[in-house]
Each structure stands twice: as structure tokens, then as C-alpha cells.
Amino acid sequence: MIHAIIPNKTIPEVLKSDDESLKYQIALSLVPGIGPVLAKNLVSYCGGVREVFNRSKIQLERIPGIGPERAGMIRHSIIMKRAEEELVFIRTYGIKSLFYLDKAYPQRLSHCVDAPILMYFKGDCDLNAGRFIAVVGTRHATSYGREVTEKTIADLAAFGVTIVSGLAYGIDIIAHRAAMEAGLGTVAVTAHGLDRIYPSLHKCTAEKMTMKGGVLSEYISGTMPDRENFPARNRIVAGMCDATIVVESAQRGGALITADIANSYNRDVFAFPGRIHDAFSQGCLSLVKENKAMLVCSADDIAKALNWDIEGPLKKPEKSVQLNIFTSLSEEEQRILNRLRESKLLHIDELALSLSVPLGKLSSILLRLEFEGLIRALPGKRFEFVS
């Protein structure tokens, strides 16, 4: 997916003209002793990220919560040098940066007080579009856990969800693969930088996920999957989702940490029951017994609890639609369809103007696309893409 060695390119070769502000965003996330809450306060107090680094050490010391030591670290040249190196890395490998003030930043997560100020994403997925569900559980999944995970995700496909998990052994990787099999998007949140995949056995799965979904991390390249990073990773999993499903878990484990964090964010938590004497059912049974999770037995139970049965399916998986699109359309038809996909809804005059296609020809193409079920004609000569 991403190699650890960066090609020998100079900064001007890979950086864009608007990367100066991103450099400061990265730098702020690297300052020791300044977590997400204090970093956001700093940006607010100074009036911007760049302004934080333009303040003198004395001015920074006067800001509540900073003091001499932290002010000195903000002004340290090594912070900016490391930020420049990371900037080259993410541009070289086409990694997207997500700053907490950006529109593309997961809005569900942005409401969480300890959400990271900056994350890195490799993939193709709108992290704010549609419904997001976290599926977590033990690394030692049983055949029962595998069956429940695969069946639940397959049944949730009707609601167009995106499945989020941690790419770990057990329930995590089963959930990612089940999502891809069902034609759903799936996102892995890692506890390390995007210059590596842990465990390495899941690298092929991670590569496939970037086609419809992706890999997300708050950590810069070179960060190892250290033990303390995993609980921090779990807050992103819980925070960016509408709800968390715990399939199997022992009495202690990362899945229960994710469930507790989800509860602290006032998100729904669901747990599947198991046999009362099974070791990997104890965590789920405890969650239910302590009213930390709602007991569910199917995707139908989850949909009802979230009122999805009333709202109806948001969208169907795009798997079969993609096959039709790319095997039967001419280049011009594909161009028109892509324009509608980007804008969702357009008047025929807007389409003709933006694509420089004569109205008569455009009308006949739109009619064919409508017959194919790829677009929908609306009153007033408007057309929308059918997802």
C-alpha cells in the first residue's frame, strides 16, 4: 500500500502552493504536551494555526495552559522540520489530511471534545456521507462470532452503511472483509502511521479497502503500533460512527474500551449475546447487564433501534451499479453521468453548458441513461444521479 522509504524528491517537487497552512497544522499536532483540547484552544486564542507559530515565546507563555516549557516546544525548530518531512510524505503518497476545521473532517467525530486536531486518510470515501457503524470484538473470534459478523453486515447492506473497525485480527478483519463482500465501504482506523500496516498479514485487505473506504490514522509516518496508541485509536472508531456493535468480547479487551467511549459520546452501543459460560461472551453479557449496551440478535434489531426501518434504506451498495456503468457506457455518456454524480441535481441547460454538448444530443443521451436506471428525470427539466 505505502512503502516506508520516501523517494528522493525535494520539497518543491511534491508540495503544492497551498501547503504552507498544512505544514503549520501538522506542526501543531506534533508539539509535546499539547493535546487536542489545548491545541484547539490555542488556535481559537491566537486566531489561526499559523498565528500560533507567529507568536513570540513570551506571548505564548501568557496563554492559559501553555507556560514556558510548552511555549519553548512550540518555538522549537525541530517541530517545523518534522512537519515539513511529513508534508513531503503525505504528498508523495497521495494521503489526504483532515484538519478539525475542514469540511471533510468527520463531523460526528468533531463533536467529541478529545477528537484529534489532524488525521491522515488513504482511500476513497466521504467520511460524512451516509450511515457509519463500528463493528468491534475479540481478536480470538469463534466460528459463532464470524457467522454473526458476516450475517449482520450482509443484512445491513440494504441500509448503505459504511463499516468502521480497527484492522486487527479476529472480529475487526472479519468485519472489513464482510463489508467488501457485501459491496459496502469500510474504513480501518489504525494505531500507527500510514507508512506501515499492522498486522502485516492484512496489508492486501487494506489495499483493497482504499478502493471504496480506506485507512485512517491520527499518527504521522514512523509511528509504531505501540500499546498506548490502541485505546486512543478506539476513540476515533467510536466517535466517527452513529453506533458501535460489539460482537464478541472477553471480560476485558479493546472492544469494551470502544463501547465505553461510545457511551461517553452518547452514541448507541449494541451487543450480541452468547452462551453464559463462554469466555468470549462475557464482555457482551456484562455490557447488557450493566445497561451499557442494547442486546440485539440481528441487523433488523439494530435498524429498528436506530429508526432506520422508518427512514428506509439510504442507498444500496454500488457494486452492481458500477459494473453496469463501466461496461456499457460510451465515453460521452460516462462524462455526463460523472457530472451528474458530482452535482447530484442539474438542469438540462446547466448540463449542456458545463459539458459543451448540444441540447438535442444531450436530451437523447439523458433519455438512454434514464432507461438504464442510472439517472432520474424530475419536473422542470432537471436530472439527478441515482446512487
Rank of each mutant, 00 (worst) to 15 (best):
E228I: 07
E228S: 08
E228P: 00
F230Q: 12
P231T: 07
R233A: 07
N234G: 01
I236Q: 08
V237G: 00
C241F: 04
I245A: 02
V246H: 02
E248D: 06
A250Y: 09
A250M: 08
Q251L: 12
Q251R: 14
Q251H: 12
G253V: 06
G253F: 01
G254C: 01
A255Y: 01
A255E: 00
I257K: 06
T258N: 03
T258F: 05
A259H: 04
A259W: 05
I261V: 13
I261L: 15
A262S: 06
N263I: 05
N266C: 10
N266A: 11
R267L: 03
D268Y: 08
D268N: 10
V269A: 07
A271Y: 03
A271H: 01
A271N: 08
F272P: 00
G274W: 05
R275F: 11
R275D: 10
H277W: 11
D278L: 04
D278Q: 09
A279C: 01
A279D: 11
F280K: 10
F280N: 14
F280H: 14
S281D: 08
S281Q: 12
G283P: 04
C284N: 12
L285S: 10
L285C: 06
L285N: 15
L285W: 05
S286Y: 08
L287S: 04
L287I: 07
V288E: 04
V288P: 03
K289F: 11
K292W: 06
K292C: 07
K292V: 03
A293N: 10
A293Y: 01
M294A: 11
M294R: 15
L295K: 13
L295G: 12
C297W: 14
C297A: 04
A299F: 10
D300A: 13
D301S: 12
A303L: 01
A303C: 13
K304A: 15
A305P: 03
L306S: 08
N307L: 05
N307K: 13
W308N: 00
D309H: 15
I310D: 05
I310K: 15
I310R: 15
E311R: 15
E311F: 15
G312C: 04
P313W: 11
L314A: 14
K315C: 10
K316Y: 14
P317S: 04
P317F: 12
E318M: 13
S320W: 07
Q322A: 09
L323N: 07
L323E: 10
F326M: 09
T327Y: 02
